[in-house]
């Protein structure tokens, strides 16, 4: 297959890398979660794209449908989406609590606050 034939994979890899980069490089806790979401979404594509055949339909046992797309990845990804949503929700809830506790959602400021606390203890 040519590079164009791998189109879906290129997109997947791009999203994967972009998401991972945001996740690592950003200090804002919300932005990190955005990156995480993109990162997870790229995987959905990785599963779905190979399952789809051009012109394929849902697997219905009938004369007129000869070419099926594989339904299993869709089902799997449905599960993965649920997991992703739950993770995102939990992450956001944590960020809310962190903001209540620290009054900031910037990672370096939080670290600085903790360090300060530690020093005061001593």
């Amino acid at each position: 297959m040519s590079a164009a034939g791998h189109f879906a994979y290129w997109v997947t890899i791009f999203l994967l890398m972009a998401g991972l980069y945001i996740l690592i490089a950003r200090g804002n806790l919300i932005k990190k979660l955005v990156g995480m979401s993109i990162f997870q979404t790229s995987v959905y594509l990785l599963y779905i794209a190979p399952g789809k055949l051009i012109g394929g339909t849902a697997p219905i046992f009938a004369e007129q449908f000869k070419v099926y797309s594989n339904p299993l990845p869709h089902v799997l990804i449905l599960t993965a989406i649920v997991v992703g949503v739950a993770t995102l929700a939990l992450g956001l809830a944590l960020v809310v609590r962190i903001r209540e506790a620290y009054d900031t959602i910037e990672e370096d400021e939080i670290l600085a606050l903790d360090d300060k606390l530690e020093r005061e203890k001593e």
Binding site: L29, L90, G91, L94, V95, R97, I98, D114
Partner: peptide
Amino acid sequence: LTAAYQYLI
């Protein structure tokens, strides 16, 4: 909280 967040990521 931050520990949980870090672990979550």
